[in-house]
Design a binder for these strands. Structure first.
Lengths: 141, 141
DNA sequence: AACGAGATCGGAATAATTCCGATTTAGGGG
DNA sequence: CCCCTAAATCGGAATTATTCCGATCTCGTT
């Protein structure tokens, strides 16, 4: 998705387009990876030095509500945010030593189907599936 | 697992058995559910009023390293701890409104097998799989 | 161009977790 | 059974991440 696609989608949803929001969106679309709130703040401040954490958090959760951003919760309580490249929903292999992660190409769909069967009363909105362990380099050392 | 089983396992692993550690273990074994660090602190303080957060956290991570405790990371950055009733590893349906959760009886095993195939170099040690949504009561209101 | 709802800023408040120095204690060795 | 030492605890302060809040500013409509 391009920046303009994302912005027009926000406009359609009745969201004001401020320079800060645009810049945050640019960061998220820049590299296809996840970011901490602080990383985003730093990047946005290169362009708008006065931006505050408050704005970053408010904007990220706004984007999340609008379905444009995904929030990831890693072991240790780390929260990260990434752009929701739709139909590209994915999970991660997270190395417990170096902290780097790889995306997985698949999703526990069978389980989700099974949940629908066994718990039809529960309205599923999202799920997380993260795998922890040690990557090649860290495993050997 | 009983309290004595857990304690003797700790002894075998060369861990000192202090009254605080025993009490924390009792809490974890009391109800089969997960706890916040604060809930554990409160419960332990009923017996040992001077116990500190430091002790609770240190002990929980000690138990985790020893394989007796599992740490759960919920959406919103909430960390919870529960006793690792072995061969009873499980996942949760978490309601985003009331925060209550139900245990699932199954696990994304297919996915884990697939990970072994596609990423044989990655040494998997654990995984998380949590499903978010709204339970019956909260869904309707 | 003016208006008003909603956004931003900056700093303070809150919450969760970790750190640290002083003191106490579990448990092995004599 | 007592002593000793490494390890554990306590209490409070420090740190970190996140949220709140009042004053000010601005997007987008009229």
């Amino acid at each position: 998705m391009t920046l303009n696609d994302a912005l027009s989608r926000l406009r359609t949803l009745g969201v004001k387009i401020t320079p800060q929001r645009q810049e945050i969106m640019k960061v998220l679309l820049g590299e296809e990876r996840y970011y901490s709130a602080e990383e985003i703040l730093k990047k946005v401040q290169e362009r708008y030095p006065a931006v505050s954490f408050d704005t970053v958090y408010r904007t990220l959760y706004l984007f999340k509500r609008m379905g444009l951003v995904i929030e990831l919760n890693f072991q240790g309580g780390y929260r990260r945010f990434e752009f929701n490249h739709e139909d590209k929903h994915h999970h991660h292999l997270v190395c417990l030593k170096c902290g780097k992660s790889k995306k997985l190409s698949f999703c526990p769909t069978d389980c989700l189907a099974r949940i629908k069967e066994e718990h039809p009363e529960f309205a599923v909105t999202s799920h997380s599936f993260e795998i922890y362990g040690y990557c090649r380099g860290c495993r050997d050392s």
